[in-house]
Amino acid sequence: MLITEHELLKDEIREWCVRYGADRGALLPILQEVQHKYGHISEFAMQQIADALEIHPVEVDGVVSFYQFLHTRTHGRFVIRLCRTVSCDMAGKDRVARQLENELGISFGATTPDGRFTLEWASCLGLCDQGPALLVNETVYREVTPEKVHEIVSACRRSLSAHAPEFSQEAAS
């Protein structure tokens, strides 16, 4: 990674510290910003954040590893989270899961080699009356059937080609 990208990230962290305050209470919002922008929270980012908030890097690691939506490793452009809790389970999440794996060619917990999709389980998404439910990044899909899985994945692919510049996987790694 280029030095300039490190500098950029440092500047951004400085800005976020201004916005959220440079104390421990700002940790989660700042991590969420980094996660949102870069798709993961790199080792470098964690150390910079720790420095800015005057805590220890391992404490940042402890927090990042605690929350399901924060990651230290690169995640796909689209993170697909399928609810596996009981209502969605009863509504047929297993078949949706299998179809997702088939469409993407990866199993749960993995990211496609092109870095576009990550497939994950989620605990209850609060859409239990309309299961099976899944989230693609922040967008909700309800009453998903194996048939619909293909549409969802295709829509993601289409939106990628519509929006040029490709998301930089290397950023902040």
Binding site: T85, V86, S87, S123, C124, G126, L127, C128, D129
Partner: peptide, 11 residues
């Protein structure tokens, strides 16, 4: 933080 499986009323 409505996380209890089966609840969505808060949403």
């Amino acid at each position: 933080d409505e996380g209890e499986p089966g609840t969505f009323k808060d949403r």
